[in-house]
Nucleic acid binder design. Structure first.
Lengths: 229, 229
DNA sequence: CCCGCAAGAATGGTATACCAAAATTGAAAG
DNA sequence: CTTTCAATTTTGGTATACCATTCTTGCGGG
């Protein structure tokens, strides 16, 4: 999540992209809570730039789904409800299943090794590293599988969905409870990829997504209970 | 394609969205050919607005994949190569297959009727109406199936892909040759939806996409031949 | 005490001025 | 005639001024 830029590919480092990175992190970590207004003048002053590049940054985040634009009103941090998130996870599942199959067919040995290394890094740091960093590594590992599918459009769309879902996944992760399942899924995916076993990788991806959805649904239930109690 | 706006949902009609609509049509119809520069001052003057809303419009088209942004250089009309298009069609196929299955499960009778009406309209006007309008109707019919899936994220992403592929599909459509197959696929999809037969709709969608891909590959071959000869 | 509403403040949208980087041009050297 | 390279022009990026709309606020009537 750290080095995400505005548009195609990577490696430009334009000012709006950098501002978008900063705002994104503030949103994902809750410094800018869901529903908060992002006023152009306030934030431009706060970040030491003028309104023009800030507007561009907000548009980038709107495209990613983290911010909602409203004509003639302040943009607000998006607050997706459970139904929207469910829909997005359903699509993400499909994208990952497709990626897994294609990766089994097309991944190079080097790419498989890279995926395994990333999975090991996640496993090693799961309990010790900063939670945000763990999530970045997790995302990098999934993205590496998708990249191994050698489908540029799939890679781009998958990244968009991961970004959109990043915050809610982050907020709903219940570390201890699901560590074994998550890490087990990862290991299973890596092994299936190494075996180029499409059925197996589908199974592990599906399991992974079911766990993610269960966490998020539990999070929404807790939130609703907290709002009522 | 006519009423496509910038961001979420429909029905705002902000100036940049209207400018984006106009530029989009100019790109899709070839008034702005692939590879052409979109200079901010020239186009702002030509369209009677300032550079600011034009820039917003270009960003919208960049997000749709119709133009390519290059830092410190003029944006250019995107010119995807065959490999990129193949990747995009592969994802579109997956999105449509998912939509078809979900639509068979969740579509209301009214939605199925609506899809059938749109399919009939395409069939009626296929040879007589303006080619651009036929493509709009075709897109509306496919979008109606996706809408019947009742998955907002899927609907949004599917529309993005259709938009991105609109121009190349338009340019590579070989009317007479494929009319029967195209219209047959449509009829099959409608019937499968009415029967709520998931396997059948998958079959027809797959056939439809194969035909589309074949057309586009033939188009690229002809283009390469024309460039050489 | 509450509601309606008008005046002022705040805010997003647009136009424009200015800057820095890139493209262009043209003259001089070979 | 070709090639270099520096001066000029062109262009995208940013800052800022201005406008139209929306939001606040507080006064007055009920």
């Amino acid at each position: 999540m750290t080095g995400t830029t505005s548009d195609q590919e990577d490696a430009d480092r334009t000012i709006p992209a950098a501002i978008a990175d900063r705002l994104r992190r503030e949103i994902l970590t809750g410094i800018l809570p869901a529903g908060a207004q992002i006023k152009e003048r306030d934030n431009a002053d706060r970040l030491g730039i003028s309104r023009t590049p800030l507007r561009e940054a907000v548009r980038i985040l709107a495209k990613e789904g983290l911010v909602t634009l409203r004509p003639l009103r302040s943009p607000i941090v998006a607050a997706p409800d459970l139904n929207e998130v469910r829909d997005e996870i359903a699509v993400l599942r499909m994208l990952e299943l497709m990626s897994g199959e294609l990766a089994c067919q097309k991944a190079s040995d080097a790419e498989i090794t890279h995926v395994r290394d990333l999975a090991r890094q996640v496993e090693t740091d799961y309990y010790t590293a900063d939670k945000v960093d763990v999530f970045d590594m997790d995302m990098a590992m999934h993205s590496a599988i998708v990249a191994a599918s050698h489908n540029a459009a799939l890679t781009r769309t998958h990244r968009e969905y991961l970004q959109r879902l990043w915050r809610i996944r982050f907020m709903s992760a219940r570390r201890r409870d699901d560590a074994n399942r998550t890490l087990g899924d990862h290991a299973g995916m890596v092994q299936a990829l190494a075996d180029r076993d499409e059925a197996a990788i589908r199974r592990h991806i599906d399991n992974h997504m079911n766990g993610m959805l269960a966490n998020i649904e539990a999070h929404f239930r807790n939130e609703a209970k907290a709002a009522k109690g």
